[in-house]
Amino acid sequence: MRVQDLPGEPIMWVLIASELLVFAAGITAMAGVRLTDPAGFAAAQAQLHGWMAALNTAILVSSGFCAALAERACHRGDGRRARIGLALAALGGAAFLAVKVVEYAGDLRAGLGMESHPFFTFYYLLTGFHAAHVLFGIGVLALVAIRLRPEEVQAGAAFWHMVDLVWVLILPPVYLLG
């Protein structure tokens, strides 16, 4: 297990590991606080729209697929396909955010704010922080699409896959484990 064996930039892996640790800590804290009020947490969670989260999972993994294709195309030297792949990946990110906005708007209309219940504090913090990464990731994808250097595209795609990875780990504890 040598640093050289890590694919791509080692610093990207430092970032990926850091992000995973932070989200894991947040989810663990939520699971811990839940023990103080399981019924309240279940009732709060029941007000979320799980289907939107499932839809977003499908969107995000498909977007990740596009980023992976773009990365491969870029390594082959196929700039056109690489740009198309990155654009589709970013579009997937935008679609994810659009669903998220609809979801948040519904929650807020129902009077579910950050301070409504400890569950919602974690809900907004975890998903909001993740959504901020999606937004940032769209910018990263756009940035690496300009110069199309293979190692930069790989780093950008790695960031995007990390966002993907975090989402599949957020999904069950926040939306589904009642």
Binding site: S18, L21, V22, A25, G26, A29, M114, E115, T121, F122, Y124, L125
Partner: peptide, 18 residues
Amino acid sequence: LPAYWQWIGSIFSSFEIV
């Protein structure tokens, strides 16, 4: 500041040891 800062602060500052 709002209460959610308790969690942001706790979680991120725990990693300051790294």
